[in-house]
């Protein structure tokens, strides 16, 4: 396949993904009285709850710039778990396209990630306001696109896997609800992980840990993250992107019959 054809294919996928994203965005907000406010309500509520819990249970544990620490952890967690949650039913909810048209199915994956990126941008606005209020330097926010690109590729890969498994096994939705709940408390979203604990060992296998820590180090604490965190995030993105794409391309031709 020539470079020109690859570029044309890529342009086609991006164009279609954009159309699907816009359509899904309209469908999601259709008839909603509060509209975009709903995008902010959930992270705000979670922030208040976790902030209160931390204040009550861990009075002696001091975390510098805690409000920003918590909010950034929450929005990265929401971005990843929210995208995966919607990717499980992705093929089923688009079966009217898959069964009747020769739609590029990779576009459905990209559109889903783009759609949750919208929510992520709104949530990031909350974080920005919090930085202003708490006096954390704003300049480092320009590092976030680097972290975002890594998360984006990770999400494309793992969403591809989830969408395929979700098409075959309906239970994945329920399993993921439980797993994502556990992840909220295993991942250092609201708390700090102590050194040399079992939780630290577990998090070495948790991609969310790398992305959340990477973003906090760069944006809130103005520090260059450790080699382990940088390479952990890069490897997670690359490995999941490659494996996810391979799995999706292998199974996508059967989707019209499965959904």
């Amino acid at each position: 396949m020539g470079v020109k054809k690859i570029l044309n294919n890529l342009r086609g996928i991006i164009g279609l993904s954009w159309s699907l994203t816009k359509a899904n965005f309209k469908l999601r907000n259709e008839g909603s009285y509060l509209g975009l406010f709903w995008y902010l309500l959930y992270p705000l509520l979670m922030f208040v709850i976790l902030f209160t819990i931390k204040g009550a249970l861990y009075k002696n544990t001091s975390i510098e710039f805690y409000p920003a620490y918590l909010m950034l952890g929450l929005i990265v967690y929401n971005f990843i778990t929210g995208t995966l949650s919607s990717s499980i039913n992705l093929m089923l909810s688009n079966k009217h396209f898959i069964k009747s048209m020769n739609i590029n199915k990779n576009s459905l994956i990209l559109a889903n990630v783009l759609q949750t990126t919208f929510s992520h941008v709104f949530e990031f606005f909350l974080f920005f306001v919090l930085l202003l209020i708490t006096g954390v330097p704003l300049i480092n926010i320009f590092f976030y696109p680097l972290v975002f690109i890594l998360i984006f590729f990770f999400l494309i890969g793992i969403s591809s896997i989830f969408s395929i498994i979700g098409s075959y096994i309906y239970d994945l939705k329920n399993i993921w609800t439980i797993v994502s709940g556990i992840l909220l408390f295993v991942t250092p979203v609201a708390f700090i992980i102590q050194k040399n604990t079992s939780l630290e060992t577990i998090n070495q296998f948790n991609p969310l840990y790398y992305y959340i820590t990477l973003s906090r180090e760069l944006i809130i604490y103005s520090r260059i993250p450790s080699q382990e965190i940088i390479w952990g995030a890069i490897i997670c993105s690359l490995v999941f992107f490659i494996i996810g794409t391979l799995i999706f391309n292998k199974f996508k031709r059967k989707l019209a019959e499965v959904v």
């Binding site: 164009g15 159309s19 816009k22 469908l27 048209m101």
Partner: peptide
């Protein structure tokens, strides 16, 4: 085929046009 019932005629034209390349 492929029309989204809850979207407008205009939105459907853009969506199906994109799907058709």
């Amino acid at each position: 085929q492929g029309l989204q019932q809850r979207l407008s005629v205009k939105d459907n034209i853009f969506l199906l046009g994109s799907i058709n390349g």
